[in-house]
Structure formats: C-alpha cells, structure tokens
Design a protein around this nucleic acid. Structure first.
Lengths: 107, 107
DNA sequence: TAAACATATTGACATTTTTCTATATGTGTG
DNA sequence: CACACATATAGAAAAATGTCAATATGTTTA
C-alpha cells in the first residue's frame, strides 16, 4: 500500500475513537493537562494515558511536562495536513490514482 | 458520548483502513464496479464486499446495481459534511466543548 | 528522605476488526 | 431452464483494540 494511505489512516485511526475525537475537540481551545481531560470522562487514568499516547504517536497532539502535570495541545500543522490530504483524496485531480494500475506495494 | 462524536467516528473508522481510504480515492474520479476495484488489490472478493459494505453503511459511498454489476460512487455531501465537522472540531469556536462539563451521555 | 500527587507501564481479558474459505443469491445468456 | 458470472453472506480464525486493576516512575513538598 502506498505510504500516503498508511500515514493518513494512522491519523484517522487515532481520531476514529469517539472519545479521542472528543479530546481533540476539547483541545481546540488550548492546552489541557491530563487531569482536566480525565475529569471530563468516565474512564480510568490508565485508559486516558493510553488514549493520549495514541494521539501523540499519531503526531496530532503534543505533550509537555510542567511539574507533576503533562499538558497536551493540538499539532495544528498535522491536523491541517490531514484535512488537506483528505480534500485531495475526496476530489478528482490531475495525477489521480484512478489512472493507476494494481497496487504492488502491499501493506 | 454526544452523537456528533459517535457519528463522526463511525465515518472516520470506515476510512481509517488504508485499503478503504484508497478505494475512496479511486472513486473520486467517478463510479466503479466492484470487479474493477477488486483488480486493484490483492484481496479476495468477499473481503472487498465486506469493505464496500463498511463504506456504504457509513454513508459515504453509494451503490447501485446495473445488471450483474454493483457500481459504487462517493456520497460527496457526506464527505463534505465530514470535512466540515472536522474543521469545526479542530478549531476554536464560540459554543465550545471546552466550556462544557463532564460527559453524562455515555457511549 | 518520605509521603503525596500526576502520569505511565504491565499484564490480563473482552470486544472488535480483518480476512479467509465455502456457499448462497441475484442476473443475464444460450 | 441450466449455466456462467458478479456479488453477498456465513462461519471461523487471527490480529488489533479498548479497558481495567495493579504497580511503577517522575515530581513536588513537608
């Protein structure tokens, strides 16, 4: 499979969980520490920690430590890049995959 | 969980598979029958049938029968709706979830 | 340095997803 | 109507994901 699909699908997978999508929405107003996010859900702390790791590893969320707390914020460049890639894929274009042959680059 | 996240995550889940994302990209130039799509991947026919069902049930792909063949095409309204919703979620807004309290509408 | 607090990791389990083989269904053709 | 062709469904196995309790790690403060 072409890298563009693998990379994009990794980000999509990260936000394809309703709870993680809600976390991204929460972060759109600015950074939040894990404890604040946790207050907003009925999940355990390890579950949130795992979810934040998924978002960070997908590259769409940044983390920074300040004392005991970890603060998370959106990586807008990555998110804009995602919207841009989806836009290209959803609409017809010059050098289109539609003109390509069988995929020999398996996943 | 609020319906907006559940609905959006269902669509994201549908395209969070690299192969299905590639299928969406292929359909951006116009409708294709299942057999044409199948030629483009190293998967079995039932696997493609299942993948197309996921895309159709997410509402982003339409299907129509013409004789022996099923033709698939993109539902642009749904895809535009997705981009629009993501745009709202990624950027700060007036009536923001950031100002909301604990989520009592569990999934 | 010991205790308290915030977050991460481990290991386990249940659920969901992916993909296959075998088979069924629907449609056109000889 | 029997056969060929295109697609769908059923059932099973493997892999990935979501979630928890228990515990570890890192940080601040008494």
């Amino acid at each position: 499979m072409e890298p563009i699909y693998k990379e994009t699908s990794k980000i999509l997978k990260a936000i394809s969980d309703a709870k993680r999508l809600r976390i991204v929405d929460m972060l759109s107003c600015g950074e939040l520490c894990a404890c604040k996010i946790l207050e907003s859900f009925d999940i355990t702390q390890p579950t949130l920690s795992h979810d934040m790791k998924v978002l960070v590893e997908a590259g769409i969320v940044n983390d920074r430590r300040d004392g005991k707390n970890i603060y998370y914020s959106l990586n807008m460049e990555k998110l804009e890049g995602l919207l841009s890639k989806l836009n290209v894929m959803f609409y017809e274009k010059e050098d289109c995959i539609c003109n390509k042959k069988k995929d020999h680059h398996r996943m």
